[in-house]
């Protein structure tokens, strides 16, 4: 089952990238979910699509090759993250407004750039739904570097980020630089999204950040445990999803997301059974 993944280089790249994003997406996703920012990941992924389309346009129309769609997508994602923060402080009591504004802006840009770049093609299909063959060696290296940065920043600022997520007012009163930490966090989110898109695709990238966390939160005690379970669920989804996607010739975005939904259902079911068991035990 796994042999192909170790024989062909392109599959190896995909597999390693998968392991990396299966780690960082749920890791950062835990913070995203508890801060109730799940939809921001969606908005950012659509902005990233706009950036990808822009990169394709540069390639097709003007033959500019040094800004690949991967990098232009990343740049758009980071800019989108900054804009979301701006909008959120502009509309203090309607913070969720930032999401539809940025999301529709991203889709709008995508449509324009795609049609200017002569329309829909196979590449774009891969970006939308993910692909097992789209990751090159240099992409893998970039994603590795992003992963290292994400993990380092999260370890260094863990206690501040946790405090800010739990009780923002308390953090601010205590003198934590909430704005700066939050800015750092949202830029990390943008980076993780642009790194994950190659494999899971624009439409499903936010799922990899939120579904493993949704399963984990049902059964974990405390924040650290939530992170650990999220990562385990994330890695399981990626591995099972990639292998089955390859063998069934389906874009891995679909199989990865369905695997994580399955895991979510299993944990919820398992918890119910466990609770019933405990209740019965308590009665006896």
């Amino acid at each position: 089952m796994f042999t192909h993944f170790f024989t062909y280089e392109f599959l190896q790249n995909t597999f390693y990238t998968g392991l990396l994003i299966g780690f960082i997406a749920p890791l950062l996703g835990t913070f995203v979910v508890v801060r109730r920012l799940s939809l921001i990941a969606d908005a950012l992924s659509h902005v990233t699509l706009g950036g990808i389309a822009f990169g394709m346009l540069l390639e097709r129309r003007w033959g500019i090759l040094f800004i690949t769609p991967f990098y232009s997508g990343m740049a758009f994602s980071v800019i989108g993250a900054v804009l979301i923060e701006r909008l959120r402080s502009l509309y203090k009591s309607y913070q969720e407004l930032a999401i539809p504004i940025i999301l529709s802006g991203g889709v709008g840009l995508s449509v324009i750039f795609i049609s200017l770049a002569d329309g829909f093609n196979n590449d774009l299909y891969n970006y939308l739904f993910g692909s097992v063959s789209a990751v090159g060696r240099s992409d893998l290296w970039t994603i590795l570097i992003i992963s290292i940065i994400v993990v380092l920043v999260l370890v260094i600022f863990y206690k501040e980020l946790f405090m800010l997520s739990f009780d923002e007012e308390h953090a601010v009163v205590s003198g934590i630089h909430a704005k700066r930490i939050h800015f750092l966090f949202i830029v990390l989110t943008a980076l993780v999204i642009s790194a994950s898109i190659r494999i899971v695709g624009v439409l499903l990238v936010s799922a990899l950040m939120t579904l493993p966390v949704a399963a984990s939160i049902r059964i974990a005690k405390g924040f650290k445990q939530t992170i650990i379970f999220s990562i385990i669920f994330g890695e399981l989804s990626v591995i099972i999803g990639l292998v089955s996607g390859y063998h069934l010739e389906i874009p891995p975005g679909g199989t990865i997301v369905l695997t994580s939904i399955l895991l979510l259902l299993l944990t919820t079911g398992a918890k119910k059974v466990w609770l019933n068991f405990m209740r019965k035990k308590a009665i006896i």
Binding site: V34, K159, F223
Partner: peptide, 27 residues
Amino acid sequence: FVSQKANAFNRGFPATVKEVVSTGMTA
């Protein structure tokens, strides 16, 4: 300082007592 809004936190937040109390030292 114990704020009026302290207990308006998200009840579903997965944090243990230990983790919450330690945020008192973060700053």
